[in-house]
Design a protein around this nucleic acid. Structure first.
Lengths: 109, 109
DNA sequence: CCGTATATACCTGTCATCGGTATATTCCTC
DNA sequence: GAGGAATATACCGATGACAGGTATATACGG
């Protein structure tokens, strides 16, 4: 799973959101670093829907514009949690190696 | 940066290693989950060398076979540390959202 | 002598993502 | 009321990291 996909799932983890709200949420969560393109977002949502990680919760029409709300499925929740654990583990691996580098001498016993 | 690239940099963080050793190191670090293909590894090393994140430390000939040792550069170290921090932040983001999901009621003031 | 392990390297395909564009409506500005 | 920005969804072509396979050469075990 790549970063944009992970962030889309994260945006939907708390409560259902429509596409444009996800776009803004991701930008806010990352402090403006990640600004998803519309193409990235909607193809990701379609893909995740096909994979059963998200589903359409409801559709609203606000000011003549369609809002399609996506919700994280149970499967999506499990996968996001697993992915999050993997990220933490890899960060820990890298940090441990980098610490040894700064403080040479190999593993301390 | 994708997972294989991150793991290659991590493998080189502690001390220089040659290609095949990186392959085994990554498999060991991930408990066998990630087994890099030779094509993935060597194209990644070439790419990272071009980007200045790794460099060739030395070349040895062991049993008539060339061993090319790669070392993480200072730039590579900085980038790996930054990437590791990013992974931790994203994991924290996802975990926070998932916790709210399990325990509904929004942010607790 | 055949398969496996070590070791590097190339080459083709795939797929997520990027970047741009199209569509439509509402709000704000001039 | 014309033009631009924001909202909202959707399609399309290009890119680039990676997967998977293959080629190469040598050493070792059966």
């Amino acid at each position: 799973m790549r970063e944009p996909t992970f962030l889309v799932l994260t945006a939907l983890a708390e409560e259902p959101q429509h596409g444009y709200a996800v776009l803004e949420d991701v930008a806010r969560m990352t402090g403006g670093r990640v600004r998803l393109r519309a193409g990235t977002l909607y193809s990701a949502l379609d893909r995740l829907k096909t994979e059963g990680l998200v589903e359409v919760e409801r559709e609203e029409v606000v000011q003549s514009r369609l809002r399609r709300y996506y919700r994280l499925t149970g499967l999506g929740e499990k996968l996001l949690a697993a992915e999050s654990a993997r990220l933490r583990e890899q960060a820990a691996l890298a940090d441990a190696r980098l610490r040894v580098r700064q403080q040479p001498g190999g593993s301390p016993a």
